[in-house]
Amino acid sequence: MLRYVGKRILMLIPVMLGVSLIVFCMIYFTPGDPAEYMLGVDATPEAVAAMREQLGLNGTFLEQYIRYIGKIITRFDFGTSYSTHRSVTTEILDRFPNTFRLALLSMVVSAVLGIILGIISATKQYTIFDNMASAFALIGTSMPSFWFGLMLIIWFCLKLKWFPPSGFDTPAQWVLPTICLGLGSTATVTRQTRSSMLEVIRQDYIVTARSKGQLESVVVLKHGLKNAMMPIITVIGNSFGVHLGGAMLTETVFSIPGIGKMMVDAIAIKNYPVVQGGVLFIALCSSVVNLLVDLLYAYIDPRIKAQYSKKKVKKPAANQKTKGVA
């Protein structure tokens, strides 16, 4: 198992190097000189040259790339923001708590709601409950989050005045963005729970559990849900990974100072170091979450755990056999 974890972590390295190369290439081949952009059109050629030196823009493509990666690896330095002149690492770390909180809240909401709706839908298949849950899931996946956010603002902030329309400091400000971001994933989790529960419910062991007189709730939750959980966890994990990378639209609509809003603003003013650093950070986040989801599988599913510890189990058995023969 440890070897598997180690291997997976090692595999992250080439992926992250690849991502950094893609981002670096994109920015490198963009027309325009960042040094001139930072100093303005009136800057003297000497000042521009000095700024280029400072930004590490001199030398060939490879030299620049190696310098960029070197700084990240040795000092965790992603460069300096063109607009605020602060380090990109600080910019990212300042905003990350907001993004993390939003992603976590919407994950919890969508997991709880989605699983409940999915179970109701599957256990009461083809009833009015099932149809309503399915309709909700279909609408939820089709609704653009930024539009839903605007609608929430119009109703709950401007008309009813229940919640503030922007910011992310107080719990009252968390409600609408969480609903906005959570809707899409709730819909996906509902659909996934329904389909995997339907598959599990028809298995023989469910019939066995019922025939031995087990409570229906125990049958559904312990025998059913537990066995249907794997694909549901994948869906929840994936959406958490994506949201952690910045819910760009939700954060923009509700003016939340998170990673997503930072990226949208940075792209709008061509603040390349922030774009580069942000993309790398986001890719790292989603890769780490994917890795954790895979590890979670091994933790909750004894079949997968057995697969990894197969060699360990086999060896003592073989030894015993040889001992016996001897």
Partner: peptide, 22 residues
């Protein structure tokens, strides 16, 4: 396939946004 994995590591909208920025 490894090259595709690298592209898949960047969320879709973000990748499109970065390309649009360039």
């Amino acid at each position: 396939m490894r090259a595709m994995d690298i592209f898949m590591a960047i969320p879709g909208t973000l990748l499109a946004m970065s390309i649009m920025a360039v």
